[in-house]
């Protein structure tokens, strides 16, 4: 059965059958997924077009590199197609695809880490580093910033974290995953997740507060509580 016919067969009788790309672009994700599960590659292409920016952005936020992000996001789509029969609709299609790209990025980052000798700096960060004992920031790092500036700073701060700390922050704050889920994805204990999250938050707060101080041309100690 051709792709368009397959998709028409899934539409309720009240819906006028459509043809080609117009039909796909009007269909809901669930309809496209069902059609793709039956082998309709046109439906899958529409799903790729809808979610590609989000999947690429997630890969980029983890890898911090455009080429890696492109390769891994494409690999995620290929895997998505191959595992489409396993998609049960418990989460949205976009969330399901995001989990696939996150797993691929983590695999790539682990491989990369194994290839590199672990630096002393990384070991210190795992243990908590100096941020564990730094003063608490009371300055609002977003105050007076335009949205674009804020995003640029968050991006810059995320780039300064190790991949373990960045990933745990992304999964918790952006993907809204629980500690238990993060531990499973990252293949570590819940205690490690908590420790990494604590460090990542403190480091992010410190970086953003420092940049704010630099903007204001001051380094006011009264903004920090000892």
């Amino acid at each position: 059965m051709a792709g368009a016919e397959r998709l028409n067969s899934l539409l309720p009788p009240s819906v006028e059958p459509m043809t080609g790309n117009a039909q796909h672009s009007a269909a809901a994700d669930e309809t496209l997924v069902k059609a793709a599960q039956k082998g309709d590659m046109g439906a899958f292409e529409e799903l790729v077009a809808r979610h590609r920016d989000k999947i690429y952005a997630r890969a980029y936020s983890m890898m911090r590199n455009e080429d890696d992000a492109l390769d891994l996001s494409q690999e995620a789509w290929v895997k998505g197609w191959q595992r489409l029969q396993q998609f049960q609709g418990d989460a949205s299609f976009g969330t399901w695809m995001t989990r696939i790209v996150i797993n691929l990025c983590l695999d790539a980052l682990r491989r990369r880490k194994r290839q590199q000798a672990e630096s002393v700096e990384v070991l210190n960060e795992e243990a908590g580093g100096v941020e564990r004992h730094m003063p608490v920031m009371t300055v609002n790092p977003t105050e007076g910033l335009e949205r674009a500036e804020l995003r640029e700073r968050i991006d810059r701060a995320m780039a300064q974290l190790t991949y373990e700390h960045r990933t745990v922050l992304i999964l918790h704050e952006f993907e809204e995953m629980e500690y238990k889920q993060i531990a499973k994805v990252m293949d570590c204990s819940i205690g490690t997740v908590m420790s990494r999250l604590f460090y990542a938050r403190r480091r992010l707060a410190a970086l953003m507060a420092n940049w704010k101080d630099e903007d204001e041309g001051t380094n006011t100690p009264d903004k920090q509580k000892p």
């Binding site: 920016d53 690429y56 936020s61 995003r151 953003m208």
Partner: peptide
Amino acid sequence: ALAGGEPPRPLP
């Protein structure tokens, strides 16, 4: 700061 602060990154 993080809420809504993740930079959008369109596919190149």
